[in-house]
Design a protein around this nucleic acid. Structure first.
Lengths: 233, 233
DNA sequence: CAGTGGTCTAGACCACAGG
DNA sequence: CTGTGGTCTAGACCACTGG
Protein backbone atom coordinates (compact mmCIF):
# COMPACT_ATOMS: atom_id res chain seq x y z
CA UNK A 1 0.00 0.00 0.00
CA UNK A 2 1.08 3.47 -0.62
CA UNK A 3 -0.86 5.76 1.68
CA UNK A 4 1.43 7.75 3.88
CA UNK A 5 0.48 9.77 6.88
CA UNK A 6 -0.47 13.37 6.20
CA UNK A 7 -0.28 15.50 9.32
CA UNK A 8 -1.92 18.89 9.24
CA UNK A 9 -1.53 21.58 6.66
CA UNK A 10 2.24 21.20 6.62
CA UNK A 11 1.76 17.59 5.75
CA UNK A 12 -0.41 18.53 2.79
CA UNK A 13 2.08 21.24 1.87
CA UNK A 14 4.97 18.77 1.86
CA UNK A 15 3.08 16.10 -0.06
CA UNK A 16 2.09 18.55 -2.80
CA UNK A 17 5.66 19.82 -2.91
CA UNK A 18 6.86 16.24 -3.23
CA UNK A 19 4.56 15.65 -6.19
CA UNK A 20 5.86 18.78 -7.87
CA UNK A 21 9.46 17.73 -7.46
CA UNK A 22 8.66 14.15 -8.45
CA UNK A 23 7.05 15.58 -11.62
CA UNK A 24 3.80 13.80 -10.79
CA UNK A 25 2.38 17.22 -11.54
CA UNK A 26 4.39 19.12 -14.13
CA UNK A 27 4.58 22.85 -14.77
CA UNK A 28 1.32 24.02 -16.30
CA UNK A 29 -0.69 21.05 -15.05
CA UNK A 30 -4.06 21.54 -13.42
CA UNK A 31 -4.19 19.84 -10.05
CA UNK A 32 -7.34 18.56 -8.29
CA UNK A 33 -9.65 21.03 -6.58
CA UNK A 34 -9.37 21.74 -2.89
CA UNK A 35 -12.44 19.60 -2.23
CA UNK A 36 -10.98 16.62 -4.07
CA UNK A 37 -7.63 16.90 -2.33
CA UNK A 38 -9.37 17.25 1.00
CA UNK A 39 -11.18 13.97 0.51
CA UNK A 40 -8.05 12.30 -0.82
CA UNK A 41 -6.05 13.38 2.21
CA UNK A 42 -8.93 12.88 4.58
CA UNK A 43 -8.93 16.36 6.00
CA UNK A 44 -11.04 19.51 5.84
CA UNK A 45 -10.93 21.77 2.82
CA UNK A 46 -9.65 24.63 4.97
CA UNK A 47 -6.55 22.59 5.70
CA UNK A 48 -5.86 22.02 2.03
CA UNK A 49 -6.53 25.71 1.41
CA UNK A 50 -3.94 26.71 3.96
CA UNK A 51 -1.33 24.48 2.35
CA UNK A 52 -2.02 25.54 -1.23
CA UNK A 53 -2.14 29.19 -0.24
CA UNK A 54 1.34 28.88 1.24
CA UNK A 55 2.65 27.27 -1.92
CA UNK A 56 1.01 29.95 -4.05
CA UNK A 57 2.61 32.69 -1.95
CA UNK A 58 5.93 30.95 -2.48
CA UNK A 59 5.34 31.24 -6.21
CA UNK A 60 5.02 27.53 -6.93
CA UNK A 61 1.32 27.51 -7.77
CA UNK A 62 -0.99 29.75 -9.75
CA UNK A 63 -4.50 29.85 -8.38
CA UNK A 64 -7.56 31.44 -9.88
CA UNK A 65 -11.21 31.13 -9.04
CA UNK A 66 -13.02 28.76 -11.28
CA UNK A 67 -9.88 28.16 -13.33
CA UNK A 68 -8.42 26.03 -10.56
CA UNK A 69 -4.87 25.55 -9.38
CA UNK A 70 -1.96 25.03 -11.74
CA UNK A 71 1.73 24.31 -11.21
CA UNK A 72 3.59 27.52 -11.98
CA UNK A 73 5.30 27.55 -15.38
CA UNK A 74 8.23 29.46 -14.05
CA UNK A 75 8.60 29.21 -10.33
CA UNK A 76 9.53 32.75 -9.37
CA UNK A 77 12.30 32.60 -6.85
CA UNK A 78 11.44 35.00 -4.07
CA UNK A 79 14.49 36.02 -2.14
CA UNK A 80 13.40 37.66 1.09
CA UNK A 81 16.10 39.86 2.50
CA UNK A 82 15.98 40.89 6.10
CA UNK A 83 17.06 44.48 6.07
CA UNK A 84 18.00 45.14 9.63
CA UNK A 85 19.99 47.66 11.52
CA UNK A 86 23.66 47.78 10.54
CA UNK A 87 24.69 47.13 14.12
CA UNK A 88 22.75 43.86 14.20
CA UNK A 89 24.14 42.89 10.84
CA UNK A 90 27.64 43.20 12.24
CA UNK A 91 27.02 41.70 15.66
CA UNK A 92 25.26 38.69 14.17
CA UNK A 93 28.52 37.86 12.47
CA UNK A 94 30.23 37.93 15.83
CA UNK A 95 32.16 41.11 15.17
CA UNK A 96 32.54 44.20 17.33
CA UNK A 97 30.39 47.11 16.30
CA UNK A 98 31.63 50.68 16.16
CA UNK A 99 30.08 53.92 15.02
CA UNK A 100 31.30 57.39 14.28
CA UNK A 101 29.38 60.47 13.21
CA UNK A 102 31.16 62.46 10.52
CA UNK A 103 28.83 65.37 9.96
CA UNK A 104 25.35 66.47 10.89
CA UNK A 105 23.41 69.59 10.13
CA UNK A 106 20.68 71.28 8.18
CA UNK A 107 21.74 71.81 4.63
CA UNK A 108 20.36 73.01 1.39
CA UNK A 109 19.72 69.77 -0.41
CA UNK A 110 20.59 69.16 -4.01
CA UNK A 111 17.63 69.25 -6.34
CA UNK A 112 17.88 65.51 -6.96
CA UNK A 113 17.51 64.85 -3.26
CA UNK A 114 14.52 67.16 -2.89
CA UNK A 115 12.84 65.62 -5.90
CA UNK A 116 13.22 62.03 -4.76
CA UNK A 117 11.97 62.99 -1.31
CA UNK A 118 9.07 64.98 -2.73
CA UNK A 119 10.30 67.95 -0.70
CA UNK A 120 8.75 70.66 -2.78
CA UNK A 121 9.51 73.78 -0.91
CA UNK A 122 10.27 74.85 2.57
CA UNK A 123 10.80 71.50 4.25
CA UNK A 124 13.88 71.47 6.40
CA UNK A 125 16.19 68.62 5.68
CA UNK A 126 18.81 67.29 8.05
CA UNK A 127 21.86 65.82 6.39
CA UNK A 128 24.22 63.52 8.17
CA UNK A 129 27.05 61.19 7.36
CA UNK A 130 28.55 58.50 9.53
CA UNK A 131 30.69 55.41 9.43
CA UNK A 132 29.89 51.98 10.80
CA UNK A 133 32.82 49.85 11.93
CA UNK A 134 33.24 46.11 12.34
CA UNK A 135 36.17 45.08 14.51
CA UNK A 136 37.49 48.64 14.24
CA UNK A 137 37.65 48.48 10.48
CA UNK A 138 35.34 50.63 8.36
CA UNK A 139 32.33 48.60 7.29
CA UNK A 140 29.97 51.04 5.63
CA UNK A 141 29.30 54.71 5.11
CA UNK A 142 25.86 56.03 5.92
CA UNK A 143 24.74 59.12 4.04
CA UNK A 144 21.29 60.20 5.10
CA UNK A 145 18.72 62.96 4.67
CA UNK A 146 15.92 63.31 7.20
CA UNK A 147 12.77 65.29 6.58
CA UNK A 148 12.45 67.44 9.71
CA UNK A 149 8.94 68.52 8.89
CA UNK A 150 7.88 64.89 9.21
CA UNK A 151 10.24 63.96 12.04
CA UNK A 152 10.61 67.12 14.13
CA UNK A 153 11.92 65.11 17.09
CA UNK A 154 15.10 64.46 15.13
CA UNK A 155 16.14 68.04 15.88
CA UNK A 156 16.64 67.15 19.51
CA UNK A 157 18.61 63.98 18.98
CA UNK A 158 22.35 63.85 18.97
CA UNK A 159 23.34 61.25 16.49
CA UNK A 160 26.83 61.08 17.89
CA UNK A 161 26.25 58.01 19.98
CA UNK A 162 23.12 56.51 18.47
CA UNK A 163 23.13 56.02 14.73
CA UNK A 164 20.28 57.60 12.83
CA UNK A 165 19.74 54.18 11.36
CA UNK A 166 18.86 52.79 14.73
CA UNK A 167 17.01 55.78 16.15
CA UNK A 168 14.68 56.05 13.20
CA UNK A 169 13.79 52.39 13.00
CA UNK A 170 12.96 52.32 16.70
CA UNK A 171 10.99 55.52 16.78
CA UNK A 172 9.49 56.30 13.41
CA UNK A 173 7.22 53.74 11.79
CA UNK A 174 6.93 53.85 8.05
CA UNK A 175 4.13 52.77 5.82
CA UNK A 176 6.08 51.94 2.70
CA UNK A 177 9.33 52.51 0.92
CA UNK A 178 11.63 51.44 -1.80
CA UNK A 179 15.06 49.93 -1.83
CA UNK A 180 17.63 49.55 -4.58
CA UNK A 181 20.89 47.66 -4.81
CA UNK A 182 23.69 48.64 -7.13
CA UNK A 183 27.43 48.97 -7.59
CA UNK A 184 29.44 52.18 -7.58
CA UNK A 185 33.07 53.22 -7.77
CA UNK A 186 34.71 54.72 -4.71
CA UNK A 187 35.31 58.45 -5.05
CA UNK A 188 38.17 60.07 -3.20
CA UNK A 189 36.30 60.80 0.03
CA UNK A 190 34.71 57.37 0.11
CA UNK A 191 38.02 55.67 -0.55
CA UNK A 192 39.68 57.51 2.32
CA UNK A 193 36.84 56.83 4.69
CA UNK A 194 36.58 53.15 3.87
CA UNK A 195 40.33 52.74 3.59
CA UNK A 196 40.38 51.46 0.03
CA UNK A 197 41.56 52.47 -3.42
CA UNK A 198 39.84 55.19 -5.39
CA UNK A 199 37.69 53.48 -8.01
CA UNK A 200 37.14 50.28 -6.02
CA UNK A 201 33.81 48.66 -6.83
CA UNK A 202 31.50 49.07 -3.85
CA UNK A 203 28.15 47.53 -3.06
CA UNK A 204 25.51 50.20 -2.47
CA UNK A 205 22.04 50.18 -0.96
CA UNK A 206 19.67 53.09 -1.48
CA UNK A 207 16.58 53.28 0.64
CA UNK A 208 13.71 55.74 0.75
CA UNK A 209 10.94 55.40 3.30
CA UNK A 210 7.57 57.10 3.55
CA UNK A 211 4.86 57.78 6.05
CA UNK A 212 1.92 57.82 3.70
CA UNK A 213 2.72 60.44 1.07
CA UNK A 214 5.48 62.10 3.06
CA UNK A 215 9.09 61.03 2.70
CA UNK A 216 10.71 60.34 6.06
CA UNK A 217 14.27 59.68 5.12
CA UNK A 218 16.56 58.94 2.24
CA UNK A 219 19.55 56.75 2.88
CA UNK A 220 22.60 55.62 0.99
CA UNK A 221 24.71 52.87 2.48
CA UNK A 222 28.08 52.36 0.83
CA UNK A 223 29.78 49.17 1.90
CA UNK A 224 33.49 48.51 2.09
CA UNK A 225 35.00 46.42 -0.72
CA UNK A 226 34.13 42.75 -0.80
CA UNK A 227 30.78 43.10 0.92
CA UNK A 228 28.15 40.56 -0.03
CA UNK A 229 24.47 40.49 0.71
CA UNK A 230 23.45 36.85 0.98
CA UNK A 231 20.24 34.96 1.53
CA UNK A 232 18.64 31.57 1.11
CA UNK A 233 16.10 30.79 -1.53
CA UNK B 1 -19.46 57.22 18.09
CA UNK B 2 -16.23 55.86 16.91
CA UNK B 3 -16.80 52.30 15.78
CA UNK B 4 -15.79 51.84 12.19
CA UNK B 5 -16.65 48.96 9.98
CA UNK B 6 -14.20 46.06 10.10
CA UNK B 7 -14.58 43.83 7.06
CA UNK B 8 -12.96 40.44 7.12
CA UNK B 9 -9.41 39.59 8.06
CA UNK B 10 -8.02 42.40 5.94
CA UNK B 11 -10.15 44.81 7.90
CA UNK B 12 -8.67 43.54 11.14
CA UNK B 13 -5.22 43.63 9.58
CA UNK B 14 -5.64 47.25 8.53
CA UNK B 15 -7.07 48.33 11.86
CA UNK B 16 -4.22 46.78 13.81
CA UNK B 17 -1.77 48.33 11.39
CA UNK B 18 -3.46 51.69 11.92
CA UNK B 19 -3.06 51.38 15.67
CA UNK B 20 0.61 50.60 15.26
CA UNK B 21 1.21 53.63 13.09
CA UNK B 22 -0.96 55.80 15.31
CA UNK B 23 1.20 54.64 18.22
CA UNK B 24 -1.87 53.43 20.09
CA UNK B 25 0.29 50.38 20.54
CA UNK B 26 3.99 51.16 20.75
CA UNK B 27 6.97 48.91 20.03
CA UNK B 28 7.27 46.34 22.79
CA UNK B 29 3.66 46.67 23.91
CA UNK B 30 1.57 43.62 24.59
CA UNK B 31 -1.67 43.71 22.62
CA UNK B 32 -4.93 41.98 23.57
CA UNK B 33 -5.31 38.27 22.98
CA UNK B 34 -6.93 36.91 19.86
CA UNK B 35 -10.09 36.13 21.81
CA UNK B 36 -10.34 39.67 23.16
CA UNK B 37 -9.77 41.24 19.77
CA UNK B 38 -12.30 38.88 18.23
CA UNK B 39 -14.98 40.04 20.60
CA UNK B 40 -13.96 43.67 20.17
CA UNK B 41 -14.19 43.42 16.41
CA UNK B 42 -17.22 41.16 16.51
CA UNK B 43 -15.71 38.37 14.47
CA UNK B 44 -14.40 34.84 14.95
CA UNK B 45 -11.04 34.23 16.51
CA UNK B 46 -9.84 32.54 13.33
CA UNK B 47 -10.32 35.80 11.50
CA UNK B 48 -8.20 37.69 13.98
CA UNK B 49 -5.64 34.91 13.81
CA UNK B 50 -5.37 35.24 10.07
CA UNK B 51 -4.79 38.98 10.33
CA UNK B 52 -2.23 38.79 13.11
CA UNK B 53 -0.41 35.95 11.43
CA UNK B 54 -0.01 38.07 8.31
CA UNK B 55 1.37 40.95 10.35
CA UNK B 56 3.75 38.62 12.16
CA UNK B 57 5.02 37.24 8.86
CA UNK B 58 5.59 40.80 7.76
CA UNK B 59 7.79 41.26 10.80
CA UNK B 60 5.59 43.79 12.58
CA UNK B 61 4.49 41.54 15.43
CA UNK B 62 6.19 39.03 17.67
CA UNK B 63 3.92 36.19 18.72
CA UNK B 64 4.57 33.48 21.27
CA UNK B 65 2.25 31.04 22.91
CA UNK B 66 1.25 32.05 26.38
CA UNK B 67 3.43 35.14 26.14
CA UNK B 68 0.97 36.79 23.81
CA UNK B 69 1.47 39.17 20.91
CA UNK B 70 3.80 42.17 21.06
CA UNK B 71 4.59 44.98 18.66
CA UNK B 72 8.01 44.26 17.21
CA UNK B 73 10.80 46.37 18.69
CA UNK B 74 12.55 46.67 15.40
CA UNK B 75 10.30 46.04 12.47
CA UNK B 76 12.52 43.99 10.20
CA UNK B 77 12.10 45.24 6.69
CA UNK B 78 11.67 42.22 4.50
CA UNK B 79 12.46 43.05 0.94
CA UNK B 80 11.16 40.28 -1.27
CA UNK B 81 12.92 40.20 -4.58
CA UNK B 82 11.39 38.39 -7.48
CA UNK B 83 14.30 36.67 -9.13
CA UNK B 84 12.95 35.82 -12.52
CA UNK B 85 14.34 34.89 -15.88
CA UNK B 86 16.54 37.58 -17.41
CA UNK B 87 14.37 37.67 -20.52
CA UNK B 88 11.30 38.58 -18.45
CA UNK B 89 13.27 41.14 -16.51
CA UNK B 90 14.09 42.87 -19.77
CA UNK B 91 10.74 42.49 -21.49
CA UNK B 92 8.88 43.79 -18.45
CA UNK B 93 10.73 47.04 -18.95
CA UNK B 94 9.45 47.16 -22.49
CA UNK B 95 12.80 46.50 -24.12
CA UNK B 96 13.72 44.02 -26.82
CA UNK B 97 15.42 40.90 -25.59
CA UNK B 98 18.44 39.35 -27.28
CA UNK B 99 20.66 36.43 -26.41
CA UNK B 100 23.98 35.11 -27.61
CA UNK B 101 25.89 32.03 -26.52
CA UNK B 102 29.61 32.66 -26.19
CA UNK B 103 30.94 29.28 -25.19
CA UNK B 104 29.65 25.92 -24.09
CA UNK B 105 31.43 22.69 -23.25
CA UNK B 106 32.60 20.28 -20.62
CA UNK B 107 35.56 21.68 -18.80
CA UNK B 108 37.75 20.86 -15.91
CA UNK B 109 36.37 23.13 -13.25
CA UNK B 110 38.50 25.18 -10.94
CA UNK B 111 38.74 23.80 -7.44
CA UNK B 112 36.70 26.68 -6.04
CA UNK B 113 33.85 25.81 -8.36
CA UNK B 114 33.93 22.12 -7.49
CA UNK B 115 34.00 22.91 -3.80
CA UNK B 116 31.05 25.28 -3.85
CA UNK B 117 29.08 22.78 -5.93
CA UNK B 118 30.05 19.87 -3.70
CA UNK B 119 31.36 18.10 -6.79
CA UNK B 120 33.80 15.83 -5.08
CA UNK B 121 35.09 13.66 -7.83
CA UNK B 122 34.05 12.46 -11.19
CA UNK B 123 30.99 14.59 -11.78
CA UNK B 124 30.95 16.09 -15.23
CA UNK B 125 30.42 19.79 -15.28
CA UNK B 126 29.18 21.77 -18.23
CA UNK B 127 30.50 25.30 -18.44
CA UNK B 128 28.85 27.95 -20.52
CA UNK B 129 28.95 31.68 -20.98
CA UNK B 130 26.44 33.87 -22.72
CA UNK B 131 25.31 37.45 -23.06
CA UNK B 132 21.83 38.84 -22.61
CA UNK B 133 20.93 41.94 -24.61
CA UNK B 134 18.34 44.64 -24.10
CA UNK B 135 17.55 46.69 -27.20
CA UNK B 136 20.68 45.25 -28.82
CA UNK B 137 22.93 46.54 -26.09
CA UNK B 138 24.69 44.14 -23.73
CA UNK B 139 22.71 43.80 -20.52
CA UNK B 140 24.37 41.04 -18.55
CA UNK B 141 26.89 38.23 -18.83
CA UNK B 142 25.83 34.79 -17.70
CA UNK B 143 28.59 32.48 -16.51
CA UNK B 144 27.23 29.10 -15.53
CA UNK B 145 28.27 25.63 -14.45
CA UNK B 146 25.80 22.78 -14.72
CA UNK B 147 26.19 19.48 -12.91
CA UNK B 148 25.60 16.91 -15.65
CA UNK B 149 25.37 14.03 -13.22
CA UNK B 150 22.28 15.71 -11.77
CA UNK B 151 20.94 17.11 -15.03
CA UNK B 152 21.97 14.60 -17.72
CA UNK B 153 19.37 16.00 -20.13
CA UNK B 154 21.45 19.13 -20.42
CA UNK B 155 23.85 17.20 -22.64
CA UNK B 156 21.27 17.08 -25.38
CA UNK B 157 20.26 20.70 -25.26
CA UNK B 158 21.74 23.32 -27.51
CA UNK B 159 21.89 26.48 -25.51
CA UNK B 160 22.39 28.54 -28.63
CA UNK B 161 18.80 29.63 -28.94
CA UNK B 162 17.40 28.97 -25.49
CA UNK B 163 19.34 30.40 -22.58
CA UNK B 164 20.36 27.95 -19.89
CA UNK B 165 18.73 30.36 -17.49
CA UNK B 166 15.36 29.72 -19.06
CA UNK B 167 15.75 26.03 -19.85
CA UNK B 168 16.75 25.12 -16.32
CA UNK B 169 14.02 27.06 -14.59
CA UNK B 170 11.38 25.48 -16.82
CA UNK B 171 12.67 21.95 -16.57
CA UNK B 172 14.61 21.40 -13.40
CA UNK B 173 12.89 22.09 -10.09
CA UNK B 174 15.13 22.89 -7.18
CA UNK B 175 14.55 22.38 -3.51
CA UNK B 176 16.71 25.15 -2.14
CA UNK B 177 19.55 27.47 -2.94
CA UNK B 178 21.46 30.56 -2.02
CA UNK B 179 21.90 33.89 -3.65
CA UNK B 180 24.39 36.67 -3.07
CA UNK B 181 24.63 40.22 -4.33
CA UNK B 182 27.88 42.12 -4.60
CA UNK B 183 29.94 44.54 -6.63
CA UNK B 184 32.95 43.72 -8.78
CA UNK B 185 35.28 45.51 -11.14
CA UNK B 186 35.14 44.71 -14.85
CA UNK B 187 38.09 42.69 -16.04
CA UNK B 188 39.27 42.99 -19.61
CA UNK B 189 37.03 40.28 -21.07
CA UNK B 190 34.00 41.53 -19.18
CA UNK B 191 34.63 45.10 -20.20
CA UNK B 192 34.82 44.15 -23.87
CA UNK B 193 31.73 42.01 -23.71
CA UNK B 194 29.65 44.56 -21.87
CA UNK B 195 31.11 47.45 -23.83
CA UNK B 196 32.42 49.39 -20.86
CA UNK B 197 35.69 50.51 -19.29
CA UNK B 198 38.01 48.05 -17.59
CA UNK B 199 37.55 48.52 -13.85
CA UNK B 200 33.94 49.75 -14.08
CA UNK B 201 31.95 48.83 -10.96
CA UNK B 202 29.45 46.14 -11.89
CA UNK B 203 26.52 44.69 -10.01
CA UNK B 204 26.86 40.93 -9.61
CA UNK B 205 24.47 38.17 -8.63
CA UNK B 206 25.75 34.75 -7.63
CA UNK B 207 23.29 31.93 -7.39
CA UNK B 208 23.67 28.29 -6.42
CA UNK B 209 20.73 25.91 -6.53
CA UNK B 210 20.32 22.41 -5.16
CA UNK B 211 18.11 19.40 -5.57
CA UNK B 212 18.31 18.08 -2.06
CA UNK B 213 22.02 17.59 -1.34
CA UNK B 214 23.11 17.75 -4.96
CA UNK B 215 24.11 21.02 -6.59
CA UNK B 216 22.29 21.60 -9.85
CA UNK B 217 23.91 24.74 -11.12
CA UNK B 218 26.14 27.61 -10.16
CA UNK B 219 25.51 30.92 -11.82
CA UNK B 220 27.17 34.29 -11.95
CA UNK B 221 25.31 37.16 -13.55
CA UNK B 222 27.39 40.25 -14.23
CA UNK B 223 25.29 43.26 -15.14
CA UNK B 224 26.28 46.15 -17.34
CA UNK B 225 27.22 49.40 -15.58
CA UNK B 226 24.42 51.32 -13.93
CA UNK B 227 22.21 48.34 -13.27
CA UNK B 228 19.97 48.56 -10.23
CA UNK B 229 17.94 45.91 -8.52
CA UNK B 230 14.89 47.64 -7.07
CA UNK B 231 11.94 46.61 -4.97
CA UNK B 232 9.24 47.95 -2.71
CA UNK B 233 9.25 47.53 1.03
C1' DC C 1 -0.91 24.87 36.13
C1' DA C 2 -3.37 27.91 33.11
C1' DG C 3 -3.43 31.20 29.34
C1' DT C 4 -2.09 31.96 24.77
C1' DG C 5 -1.46 31.04 20.05
C1' DG C 6 -1.69 27.06 16.51
C1' DT C 7 -4.51 24.29 14.19
C1' DC C 8 -8.43 21.36 12.61
C1' DT C 9 -13.31 20.70 11.43
C1' DA C 10 -17.86 20.86 9.20
C1' DG C 11 -20.58 23.75 7.24
C1' DA C 12 -21.81 27.89 4.99
C1' DC C 13 -21.99 31.89 1.89
C1' DC C 14 -19.78 34.72 -1.41
C1' DA C 15 -16.97 36.55 -5.48
C1' DC C 16 -15.22 35.69 -9.48
C1' DA C 17 -14.57 34.14 -14.04
C1' DG C 18 -14.66 30.18 -17.45
C1' DG C 19 -17.59 28.05 -20.66
C1' DC D 1 -24.79 29.39 -15.05
C1' DT D 2 -21.75 26.69 -12.36
C1' DG D 3 -17.42 25.27 -10.45
C1' DT D 4 -13.60 27.05 -8.11
C1' DG D 5 -11.07 29.41 -4.67
C1' DG D 6 -11.72 32.99 -0.75
C1' DT D 7 -13.39 33.63 3.46
C1' DC D 8 -16.09 33.44 7.83
C1' DT D 9 -17.93 30.92 11.82
C1' DA D 10 -18.47 28.39 16.18
C1' DG D 11 -16.52 25.14 18.46
C1' DA D 12 -12.93 22.13 19.72
C1' DC D 13 -8.43 20.16 20.99
C1' DC D 14 -3.61 20.64 21.26
C1' DA D 15 1.27 22.49 22.12
C1' DC D 16 3.88 25.28 24.16
C1' DT D 17 5.63 28.06 27.80
C1' DG D 18 5.43 31.63 31.32
C1' DG D 19 4.52 32.22 36.04
Amino acid sequence: MNSLQIHGWQGVHDEVLRRIHARTWKPGDLIPSEADLASEFGCARATVNRALRALAEAGLLDRRRKAGTRIALQPVAKATLNISVVRQEIEERGRKYGYSLLSCGQEAAATSVRVSMRAHGSEDLLHLTAVHFADDRPYAIEDRWINLSVVPDARNVSFETVSANEWLIRNIPYTNGEIAFSAAAADRFTAETLDCEVGSPLFVIDRLTFDGPKAITKLKLIYAPGHQLRTEL
